[in-house]
Design a protein around this nucleic acid. Structure first.
Lengths: 238, 238
DNA sequence: CGAATAGTGTCTGTTAGACACTATTAA
DNA sequence: TTAATAGTGTCTAACAGACACTATTCG
């Protein structure tokens, strides 16, 4: 930024400028399907459409802090793994005023996600569908009805799922979607849900064990009606 | 965003809000090394430090349009491949006022980059260095002097180079750094410059040809003092 | 014991690195 | 012909998919 520009814009009131919000894709794997928290809009514009939880960024608030605050206050979620996704700033993305939004992806295990949905009629865990190359995006209610989305939130959701897919096999994002202790089968189910494909069991096990990211706990699954699987935990690489 | 929040913030003057800028990492491979355009700051704060070209986002201007405008007006560059990188919004990243900046990565071939540096004393093509895992970042003048960077621009530059590295082998970014017709050796040099390693020639050729991204033009290099190499061009996958 | 899932051994095809080789051009 | 680089053939090691197999636990 040159100083000319700076001086012309120093007075925060002097020129009209966009507002900044954060919007959150709070995602988990529920029943083997990728699910995100959506809120029903109760007033115009876009009343009765479904929207991501979001909020304005405070003047003295870091972007990550704003995302964490929105997750807590609007969605009742703490402890999600938050990661910046992309910034959406099309001039006409909100009909009311110019709003640039920084989208964050928040990952959590199924239990925490379910807790956040309790007793809240205007909140829902939407199932995401998307084709192998990112085409054919849809958000559906758990019963399968297509959900109309507000603003450009379909674009944000598609970007979130594609980001997850891209990072899944070289980063540790998959573990953020599981409880602290998990079986290899659960880990495979998470990967299959995100990728939308089925995976080969021996190859998956080998790959995961070779990465050195998981350590056996010695404990085993409880409550299984047949042979219980070993429980592993995530251990960042040495 | 809930309507409560919306109403409290509807009046653009009612609450203090961050400003939005775009900052550009305009990058090319020059002499086999990754180089970015930096501008010397001539006034406080951070006078004599080196900064990325940037500018405020207009109230009726898309983010991409702002990035293209800054590339043209501040750097004299048109036709770069622009891609959103990351949004930096730490509260104290600029000492004057709260500024959230959306960083864009702009790639171009060496010739276009050289043109942009002509006759401009306060502008420079800085050579970037970074370790294999992203540590040890440095920006140096072509003569090798370390360049002090303004604000959080070292962080932005490191993110840019790591993004390039990550995308290099599955996307077509490498071709944006080459002229329309290029030899496989030039393509390999671009990859080596970005990755900071040397690559195996036969393996590299096979991989590139197998991807189906390049097509022979039939023409050959001119002016080589020995056997001239075949010229290829980029052709998006069928 | 039988059902059902956990977990393994092994074959095969693909791909990358290494290295030596042949091919082609200008001087 | 020679120097120098373009371009190829082939061996080997690493790794993923496929499939069949063994192991373990509950009822």
């Amino acid at each position: 930024m040159s100083d000319d520009d700076f001086l012309r814009n120093y007075d925060p009131q002097a020129f009209a400028r966009p507002s900044i919000t954060v919007d959150l894709v709070l995602l988990s794997i529920r029943g083997g399907r990728p699910s995100v928290l959506l809120m029903r809009r109760t007033a115009p514009p876009q009343a009765d459409r479904w929207a991501l939880p979001g909020g304005f960024v405070g003047i003295d608030e870091d972007l990550e802090a704003a995302a964490a605050r929105v997750a807590r206050d609007k969605a009742g979620i703490e402890g999600a793994r938050l990661e910046q996704l992309y910034t959406f700033g099309a001039v006409d993305r909100d009909p009311r005023m110019r709003i640039v939004t920084v989208a964050y992806l928040g990952l959590m295990e199924e239990g925490a996600f379910e807790d956040a949905l309790r007793d809240t009629p205007d909140r829902l865990g939407a199932v995401l569908e998307i084709g192998p190359t990112g085409e054919g995006f849809a958000a559906r209610s758990p019963r399968g009805e297509a959900l109309p989305l507000a603003f450009d939130h379909a674009e944000i959701l598609a970007a979130a799922l594609m980001r997850l897919r891209g990072k899944l096999d070289w980063s540790d994002v998959g573990f953020s979607l599981l409880p602290e202790r998990f079986t290899l089968r659960q880990l495979q189910e998470v990967h299959e849900a995100i990728l939308g494909t089925s995976l080969n069991k021996p190859a998956f096990r080998r790959r995961m064990l070779d990465k050195g990211w998981i350590a056996p706990t010695g404990a085993r699954e409880e409550g299984a009606s047949f042979r219980p699987a070993e429980l592993f935990r995530f251990q960042p690489n040495t």
